[in-house]
């Protein structure tokens, strides 16, 4: 495990932690962006260049912006009276810890059985991806296209101001 990996992992985790711990929601959104960036770099380190760049483009370029917009649009009061954490935050924490424990245990448990291919990195070109998309994965592609259309329309309808008469 190289140093790069630890650095990138630390960055990502820190970003994630900040995203859920900070009080100011905008700061959370920004920390999220950092986490996204860390993840993109991790992808790059895993020789999944296309995925990394797609991550940057989509997540950082669109989702993060979207989150920020949403935060800005839903500002009623800056900080709620009872604090930013829910009343039973302990149980949430415990459950999350339990989840991590279980996953970690699963991973560590199957250390020996994991088939690790320590060969050279695969060379993946955009052509290959394009071929795959249009060939083998054409159906998922179309479905995702449909999904995106539906999501687009749905989001618009959901977020649209209601007609005056229907109030």
């Amino acid at each position: 495990m190289s140093v790069v990996f630890y650095l990138l992992a630390g960055l990502t985790v820190a970003g994630g932690l900040a995203a859920v711990l900070l009080k100011n929601t905008v700061h959370c959104a920004l920390a999220l962006t950092v986490a996204f960036a860390g993840l993109a770099l991790l992808f790059l380190s895993l020789d999944a260049q296309f995925a990394g760049f797609a991550q940057i483009l989509v997540y950082i370029g669109a989702v993060a912006i979207l989150v920020v917009f949403a935060i800005l649009l839903t500002r009623g009061s800056e900080t709620p009276k009872d604090g930013v954490y829910s009343r039973h935050w302990i149980s949430g924490l415990v459950i999350a810890a339990g989840v991590f424990a279980v996953f970690g245990w699963a991973v560590l448990q199957s250390l020996g059985g994991l088939p690790v291919r320590t060969g050279p990195a695969p060379t993946v070109t955009v052509l290959d991806i394009g071929n795959a998309l249009m060939g083998r994965y054409v159906l998922p592609l179309e479905i995702v296209a449909l999904l995106l259309t539906a999501a687009l329309i749905g989001a618009v309808i959901v977020a649209m101001h209601e007609k005056e008469g229907a109030k």
């Binding site: 149980s91 949430g92 459950i95 339990g98 989840v99 279980v102 245990w105 699963a106 448990q109």
Partner: peptide, 24 residues
Amino acid sequence: VQTYLRLLALAVVALVAFLIWSSR
């Protein structure tokens, strides 16, 4: 919603733990 989410997560934990434990 959060309550339901918690329960969901709990169930997942339990299920996974069981699966792993039984496949030892």
